[in-house]
Write a protein that binds this DNA or RNA. Structure first.
Lengths: 227, 227
DNA sequence: AAACGTAATTATGAATTCATAATTCAGTCA
DNA sequence: TGACTGAATTATGAATTCATAATTACGTTT
């Protein structure tokens, strides 16, 4: 039995970090927008102290930007920063692949295979939400399977900064098909416990995501130039 | 002229994050030790609010561990966690090498060559402090030269957790010579702007540091078994 | 004397208060 | 009318206060 559950009452600021992170990642709070302490205190019915503590933590993660005496703003992640983040994420994903190949249990692998099937089905039915969810589950399972919690922490930090970008990318039908093919490849490598192979595929997978994202942005740029 | 200096007065909590981080990294506050808010407030003559904000930030970096209603303790980094951190650092170093090869200016490279010469001289004179400083400068210069500030941030976070370990490692004369040789190799690769090569060497450099560290620990274990 | 239970003390999480920097807005003058 | 000045307002950083959880100290019981 797990006694932790009953005892573990998280502190306010911990909960607030989660809630605020969600608000930002889910795009309820838009980039560049100022984060009004007062208003948020009312919505969450807490005082400013724990809220400000939470903002400090989010700032250290880079999700919000603090200016002395001018409060917090949702960090407006520039295109350049997104590139920089993806480059790092690609390497971390590679490491995740290598570690998961070795450390993931057979049970864990089987579970991933299941979710992979769900994902392919969602692709065929063009069910984006279901697809995103399955995709997320697979990546999380691999991350967990890698058995390196510190890697997990930093991966999550980096990913939260570019989450919006990742949503945009898969809008393209072409990229979607490519992503599925890459995932098929990942499953093959995972079945064979091919550490180097899985690492390589996952690195490329991420690099292709960046490339697709940049392509989308460039298309947008062209559109806005000639109205 | 730089006007920033005069205007930029960092907030208390920002300064405290720096001060506390130093205390932990420089081993003034030992792992496992509880961080007494009251005492620190007096030494820094600030109130608890900014100090606690700083602790929250350090906790999100993993340098301290918070327990609800039980305050903060300096995180006692286990051997396992040190391994996990080094594994990640090795990959980030590899990326640093690849990026620096491409992005570092010739002026920057020349400066690193100078510091490298200082480091070799320090090695020959067995000047550990000078060696450590030059070594640190080289790694920082490469990190900066990579031109990816997000990489920089995460690298620093990870490094601060294992700083003590890195100091221990270079105590061995054998490892010291090996490290110098690896650094020579790095300089060659950097001169040739061999991105893949420099990345590879830096990855291996870090992996060897871990190996040396583990060797030291195992020797200690043997010693403690048979007193 | 050891172990348990309870009261006193201390430390911590969170709310509130206070001082000051930033912003807004009204009034003035060109 | 529009730009500037300065007072009023608001928002923020930090200190203080308050309520409660955790720890310690003490006394009781066996």
């Amino acid at each position: 039995m797990n006694f932790r559950q009953s005892i573990n009452r998280p502190t306010l600021h911990e909960e607030l970090v989660e809630r605020l992170r969600s608000l930002i990642v889910e795009d309820m709070l838009k980039p560049g927008e100022k984060v009004p302490e007062k208003e948020l205190c009312e919505t969450f019915s807490v005082s400013r102290t724990p809220l400000r503590e939470a903002l400090k933590v989010l700032a250290s993660e880079g999700l919000v930007t603090l200016q002395a005496n001018r409060g917090a703003r949702v960090t407006d992640v520039t295109r350049e920063e997104i590139k920089k983040t993806f480059v790092i994420l690609a390497r971390l994903e590679q490491l995740v692949g290598e570690l998961a190949s070795v450390n993931l249990s057979e049970v864990g692998r089987a579970r991933i295979e299941e979710r992979h099937a769900d994902m392919v089905a969602a692709f065929k039915a063009r069910g984006r939400t279901t697809y995103f969810q399955a995709n997320q589950d697979i990546h999380n399972a691999l991350l967990e399977g890698a058995g390196n919690d510190i890697l997990d922490t930093h991966h999550r930090m980096l990913e939260s900064r570019v989450r919006r970008a990742r949503f945009m990318v898969n809008l393209s039908e072409e990229r979607w098909a490519q992503a599925i093919s890459e995932h098929e490849d990942m499953m093959v490598k995972l079945r064979n416990r091919d550490a180097t192979g899985l690492g390589q595929v996952m690195k490329t997978h991420m690099e292709n995501k960046l490339a697709a994202y940049m392509k989308v942005l460039e298309a947008e740029d062209r559109d806005s130039e000639e109205p």
